[in-house]
Design a protein around this nucleic acid. Structure first.
Length: 851
RNA sequence: GGGCGCGUAGCUCAGUGGGAGAGCGCUCGCUUCACACGCGAGAGGUCGCUGGUUCGAAACCAGCCGUGCCCACCA
């Protein structure tokens, strides 16, 4: 070790991540370790496509958790020598990005319409160039070992090509079509959105009952609605076909109040006779159910609410009002006409836009759709046959249930930012062109062509992520080397939105599933159990955690928190990680500063050496297995406990005298153990492990590409483990005894051993001078006979002895009761009964010894 | 309405058939030459409730209570 390094180690008694992390990351980047050549086959390589964060995004706790998991597995596989690629990139995020830029424009007093489409899109690109790499930089802070040289964007040139190819092929197959259909209209973003972008919220509304007079009779049909303003677009009233109250009315007509339109009275199974009066007003233009019923019965589709959420010219007096204003006006008018029979408070769930938060306005409009049933079939089979494995297991069923019920996907959005749909219409004739490249002129009439105004749903392009990022549709070396990717970790909220669609497009276009394994991780909630969200102000900023405690601490904490069930964010776990980095640093200082100049090697001289080597290999095997099965929480807990308890609390304390003596064997063993431990921890705590490694005498290159330790079972030594664990247990009993009889902490007591010799460290660690002196012992703890001394208070010792007797009597009684149970002895497994007998014997022996 | 979870120490969570665990917090004692982000020793739990299965249940089954999430077109 250089003098400079030694000085640094000697002086730095506290690990400071802020001093280390930036420097170490720069070394990794400089080494090019994250940038693999496109060689080898997907089977032998290891690759992961990051769930692309929104280009407008800032790193949140979900990214941090997901990133920590992916990086752990990516780093482990890279260390194993596999050609490893972690693809990084961002999503253009249509609505989110457009909104950000529009907000900026509004501050200048402008709208996107003022700029025009071309200029507006140019402005968004400008914004992207300036701010779009923010989240990428934040992934670096986390330590994510992505290939930053292959960064992709869902709107970059190659990606556009992939999107156009997919659109064209789906269109040619007849899956993509244009239709006048009822959609979820989001007045906030002024666009249609898909079913998956709608969230239902519980809302307090008023349920109005309105009388519709039956034509040519004095009967009325009373219908109930929470949206009276939509009555203006009613085109029928429906009753259940089995409803005897109305059987005679089916085929007759009602008169729509306020408007006077004749509404056919129809029969439809959908109507629940139990609800209200059993009569349902039908508004195909503004209600998805009514729309279906309307199409079934060939009803007229009237639209009275426009895309701006205001009543249209079609409704005279109410035109121009917002839906809410129209509701008041319609109710007032109905009341005046005496048609309003009842109003009741009514709680029900109502669709809201997940994007803008505004209440969805269902309305009929001309949109592009994609039929999903044919695409879903192979994607269902792939999961059924475990060609894509979904874990934990319950999500497999959730995926399959949803896929089997899949409905057409509305893929067009009335936005400017996104993949503009590659469809051209002829100005002069009726011709429509779908193409990957813009056609020059109309082939039929030679007329000018204009492109479809709408853009594609952002998820349409995200669905191609695993192969489009590797260069598809070109046959690239990257695609050949890294597709399919190895696994995907994701939050369950995008299982349908993203994961399922990637499986479908992967099979259809890239000829194979996009990944072999999907791990659905838990959600980290806010400290109070609410959702972490920006709007609620409940978010916890991972970057702040990194600033304060370091990236390793956050990574450790998040992995330790993670679980199959949702958990609350735990500051304590991050602090535990922080303490761990510091402890690692200090234990390493102890080892490195005192090591004799030797090569790391297992050189067991004593039972404790065999014990620590056995524990080390056992830990490596177990932690590795847990990482491979996505059991991150137990993996990190186990590594933690091996290091803290076994290595620091016991082994280092046991061997300190040998280490200070300059014993070569113990130095070799410690350097060996440290090397393997750093390798094991590196996937979870890359910075601190790399930094410590830089001081290790065996270092030849960076830890990031150092071989990952592979468990060597030949070191497993059950007898050494049993002996040392026995010694540890005895040491703890002796210490506890000392504490209970109130001897000063630093004092050395005298004792002699009777019976089986415990491991040699017991006396020193428990502060007992072991001799062969005779004399009457004042107390017996296992084989240790404590000898009388001035420092011992006879009364306290006697009291302690009495307590121990009580404990033992209770134990003996418990054992006797259990073994006296004929059923237990007869039916329990033999080894369980044997164990019980052994324990009872030991307790009886100790009790007899105490008298 | 359907589906999936969860209820274990003061807090956050492990534990899925053989004597209740971790981290934090708390109490007591330690300026022990790696670390006070430390060391040693403790206290603290009718494992939501009721019934059942079993020699044995925190764990398996049923019901109930509480709580969270996802899906769903009852106005």
């Amino acid at each position: 070790m250089s003098a400079v390094d030694r000085k640094k180690l000697e002086e730095t008694t506290r690990y400071d991540p802020s001093e280390v992390e930036g420097r170490v990351f720069a070394e990794w980047m400089e080494g090019g370790y994250f940038h693999p050549e496109a060689e080898g086959s997907p089977e032998e390589n290891f690759s992961v496509a990051i769930p692309p964060p929104n280009v407008t995004g800032v790193l949140h706790m979900g990214h941090a958790l997901n990133g920590s998991m992916q990086d752990a597995l990516v780093r482990m596989n890279r260390m194993r020598g596999r050609n490893t690629l972690w693809v990084l990139g961002t999503d253009h995020a249509g609505i989110a990005t457009q909104s950000v830029v529009e907000k900026g424009l509004r501050a200048e007093g402008k709208s996107r319409q003022d700029l025009g489409r071309e200029e507006f899109v140019r402005r968004v690109w400008e914004w992207k160039e300036e701010y779009g790499s923010r989240i990428v930089e934040q992934y670096k802070r986390l330590g994510a070992s992505c290939d930053y040289e292959r960064e992709r964007f869902t709107l970059d040139a190659g990606y556009v090509k992939a999107v156009h190819r997919v659109f064209k092929r789906l269109y040619d197959k007849g899956y993509i079509y244009r239709d006048l259909y009822i959609v979820n209209w989001d007045p906030g973003s002024q666009s249609a959105i898909s079913d998956l972008e709608v969230e239902n919220r519980e809302v307090e509304d008023t349920l109005y009952s309105i009388d519709y007079p039956v034509e040519g009779s004095d009967r009325v049909l009373t219908v109930a609605t929470v949206r009276p303003e939509t009555m203006l677009a009613d085109t029928a009233v429906a009753v259940n076909p089995g409803d005897e109250r109305y059987g005679d009315l089916v085929g007759q007509f009602c008169l729509l109040p306020l408007v006077g339109r004749r509404l056919p009275i129809i029969a439809d199974e959908h109507v629940d006779p139990e609800f209200g009066t059993g009569a349902l007003k039908i508004t195909p233009g503004h209600d998805p159910n009514d729309f279906e019923i309307g199409r079934k019965h060939g009803l007229e589709e009237i639209v009275v609410i426009g895309p701006d959420g205001r009543l249209t010219e079609a409704v005279g007096d109410f035109a121009g009002m917002s839906a809410a204003e129209a509701q008041k006006a319609v109710v007032a008018a109905l009341r005046e006409e005496g048609r309003l029979r009842d109003e009741q408070p009514y709680a029900h769930s109502v669709p809201f836009s997940h994007r803008s938060g505004e209440r969805i306005e269902p309305l009929i409009s001309l949109q592009w759709f994609c039929r999903m049933d044919e695409l879903a079939k192979p994607a269902i089979e792939a999961v059924e046959r475990d060609e894509v494995r979904i874990a934990p297991a319950q999500w497999k069923r959730v995926y399959l249930d949803w896929m089997r019920e899949i409905r057409p996907w509305c893929i067009s959005r009335q936005l400017w930012w996104g993949h503009r749909i590659p469809v051209w219409y002829c100005d002069t004739c009726e011709e429509t062109y779908v193409a990957e490249q813009a056609p020059e002129r109309c082939g039929a009439c030679g007329g000018e062509l204009c492109q479809e105004e709408d853009v594609l749903d952002t998820w349409f392009s995200s669905a191609l992520w695993p192969f489009a990022t590797l260069g598809w549709p070109e046959d690239t070396p990257e695609l050949r080397a890294f597709y399919p990717t190895s696994f995907l970790t994701t939050a369950r909220e995008i299982l349908f939105l993203w994961v399922a669609r990637m499986v479908m497009t992967g099979i259809e276009f890239a000829g194979d599933v996009p990944f072999r394994d999907v791990y659905v991780h838990s959600v980290i909630q806010a400290r109070d159990g609410r959702r972490m969200s920006k709007s609620l102000g409940t978010g916890i900023d991972p970057l702040e955690e990194i600033d304060v405690h370091g990236a390793d601490a956050l990574r450790f904490g998040l992995l330790a928190m993670s679980s199959t069930q949702d958990v609350r964010f735990s500051d304590a776990k991050v602090e535990q990680g922080r303490d761990l980095t510091n402890k690692l640093w200090n234990a390493s200082r102890l080892i490195l500063l005192n090591a004799a100049a030797v090569e790391p090697a297992p050189r067991p001289l004593h039972v404790e050496d065999r014990w620590i080597l056995s524990r080390l290999e056992g830990t490596i095997a177990s932690v590795t297995e847990k990482l491979e099965t996505y059991d991150f929480a137990h993996a990190v807990q186990e590594a933690y406990s091996f290091f803290w308890r076994d290595l620091c609390d016991w082994y280092l304390e046991i061997v300190k005298p040998r280490l200070y003596d300059g014993e070569a064997e113990v130095s070799a063993t410690l350097l060996w153990t440290l090397e393997r431990l750093l390798g094991l921890l590196h996937p979870v705590m890359p910075f601190v492990s790399e930094e410590i490694w830089s001081f290790h005498p065996a270092r030849r290159g960076h830890l990031v590409v150092h071989p990952f330790p592979q468990a060597d079972e030949s070191f497993i030594d059950h007898s050494a483990e049993a002996d040392v664990e026995g010694g540890i247990g005895l040491t703890q009993r002796l210490r506890a005894w000392r504490d209970l009889v109130d001897v000063p902490a630093g004092s050395i007591l005298s004792a002699r051993i009777e019976g089986v010799d415990p491991p040699g460290f017991v006396g020193r660690l428990a502060r007992f001078e072991i001799s062969s002196d005779g004399g009457d012992p004042v107390a017996s703890i296992g084989p240790v006979r404590v000898l009388a001394s001035d420092q011992l208070d006879a009364e306290a010792v006697a009291e302690r002895l009495g307590k121990r007797r009580e404990e033992l009597r209770a134990e003996v009684e418990r054992g006797e009761r259990k073994l006296g149970n004929a059923g237990f002895v007869a039916k329990a497994p033999a080894e369980v009964v044997e164990e019980e007998r052994g324990k009872l014997e030991r307790y009886r022996a100790e009790l007899a010894e105490l008298g």
